[in-house]
Design a protein around this nucleic acid. Structure first.
Lengths: 329, 329
DNA sequence: TTGTAAGCGTTATCAA
DNA sequence: TTGATAACGCTTACAA
């Protein structure tokens, strides 16, 4: 009643285990051999053990995608793109969640040495020395979807937040909005820092001063709502740029609650251009930071590095575009 | 430069591999032994290989959660609950996507025999004989979050859709809405069939006739939008119950597009009470089918079955509640 | 308490 | 072409 092994199949078929293995792996064998083995496999319902196999061949044909928060729709977009690429290449994709803490990210990267997968695609939200070190020392190829220092010596695919921010500001200014506020996520995160820098630069490019700034405790809907008062007490803005779509939607709810119309009184721009941007109301103008393309490119880099671990690390930057919807005039 | 093994550690520490293994697993050893081993482990940066370990001990300490669509926010809720329970029990959770096809589900269940994980928690969207068979024959414990026939002999945790539907209709009727339409997902899915049945029963309980019916091609936002015309051409309704939140939000967009106000002209009720129900505008009254609790209970059942595979299968039904928000009067 | 050695279920090398 | 057998890296009797 216990699971059949290759030995069981061999016995049932009256052949050696080596022959069973060969047939299963499509190596040369007589027709009769193939026939006998396949029948035994059928009868016993034999399925090869992936652990034993990978222990021997040194590959698992699994890839891990690690994201900070499965509830963030931007990761959904990325996941779908990654899944498509890796499954086409014959790999299984497994997704794990790291949570917002860098120590969990480090633990995950270190844990890859346990042989769970042939490669890791990670989108870290916070980065420190430890993480860079663990990535550099990781036993399996790692590709980072995000921004880590070049010295990490790892393939990266990242967005161009500053450019994206500029697109947002350009658009708002073109629509006559000059009193622009900014709702950022935590500034101690990689995206938070990038957005902040981008916002300052973009305003400067237009010789504008920021009207109000707020920093949410997280890149979530709830945090977006919670930081709305910080913006509202400052007041005086006719547009808000938000560091991601969840924050933007959270903010829009609070704006509605105090009777401010979007886009009439306040224009709102999100970032990520996730599925949520189309689902919310009014639909959200959002900076497309290329999450699908980043996912795709990152997956391709990972596959390439698995093929050849000696290639020099590439650092790809995906250019943003603006998806204009109803939350801006 | 290649990955250190337990033999390498043993050599470096000048002890046997067995001693290294013992120290690593916290078995009795002299203080000096512990000291020497730990130093060697540190120096070499040794991390035990999970494949080899699990091949030997027969457990992976991984659990797989399989969902149909990572983009559906109801799974986010469930995932979070499952993650919490299993990680507290010392398991790693890996998430895989099956897609909408039953053949992929079957392939996944069959594939579990490869030893990827110690258990599978699956939320199948379509169920057929093959799937039931593959679940019954699965080499590792399986818990189904959803509805499969009792003869499958498997632990299940399911929602009470009909009861949930009744809550929705009760609420609408109490608010004076009697011309109720229904936007279902595919009727050939498990949830689709359950919702359909529930809707009919609930209307009957109130001696009402359905005003309009539509069946979306999928449980997605896009499908919800696409089926709105089916409802709108029928017309004559003052409320719509939708089979899930994504469909409801998709519909609400189309209602707005033709100038119908929610809830003024049309009340809308969703199901799942996912994060999206709070994020959309107006916020969505939604039937809470207990996805968090279902996830939690399912995870507990899975852990219990891993402990003792001889326990008789349980079939848990989680009761629904109604989360009233702004989309109903 | 520690070491030796036999597996776990595969694949790959080598003879036959 | 096929079969015996040695790994892969670990845990665990069993012996010392």
């Amino acid at each position: 009643m216990s699971r059949p092994t290759i030995a069981g199949v061999a016995r049932a078929a009256g052949v050696s285990v080596a022959s069973v293995s060969r047939v299963l792996n499509g190596l040369p064998a007589t027709e009769e051999m193939v026939e006998r083995v396949q029948r035994a496999v059928q009868e016993l319902g034999y399925v090869p053990d992936a652990r034993a196999r990978s222990l021997k061949v040194g590959r698992t044909f699994q890839l891990t995608l690690a994201v900070a928060d499965v509830g963030n729709p931007v990761y959904v977009t990325m996941m779908r793109a990654v899944e498509e690429v890796v499954s086409a290449a014959g790999y299984r994709l497994v997704v794990t969640t790291t949570g917002p803490d860098v120590v969990d990210e480090v633990a995950l990267v270190r844990g890859m040495a346990r042989g769970y997968a042939d490669g890791l695609l990670i989108s870290p939200i916070r980065v420190d020395e430890d993480l860079v070190k663990s990535i550099r020392e990781c036993e399996v190829p790692v590709v980072v979807a995000g921004n880590v220092p070049a010295k990490a010596g790892v393939d990266t695919v990242r967005a161009n937040s500053p450019k994206g921010m500029l697109l947002a500001i350009d658009h708002l200014v073109a629509q006559g909005r000059h009193r622009i506020a900014f709702l950022n996520g935590p500034a101690d995160t990689v995206p938070g820092a990038a957005r902040s820098k981008g916002f300052s630069e973009a305003l400067k490019a237009h010789s504008l001063q920021p009207i109000a700034l707020a920093e949410a405790s997280d890149f979530t809907f709830a945090a977006g709502r919670a930081s709305a008062p910080d913006l509202l007490t400052a007041g005086g803005f006719d547009a808000v740029v938000c560091a991601n779509d969840l924050l933007a939607v959270g903010l829009m709810h609070e704006l509605a609650a105090v009777g401010l119309e979007v886009p009439g009184d306040v224009a709102v721009v999100g970032m990520d251009d996730s599925e949520l941007a189309e689902q919310c109301f009014p639909t959200l103008t959002s900076v497309n930071l290329g999450s699908a393309e980043r996912g795709r490119r990152a997956a391709e880099l990972l596959l390439a590095r698995i093929e050849d671990n000696d290639r020099t690390p590439r650092r790809i930057v995906v250019q943003p575009s603006l998806s204009i919807r109803r939350s801006t005039p």
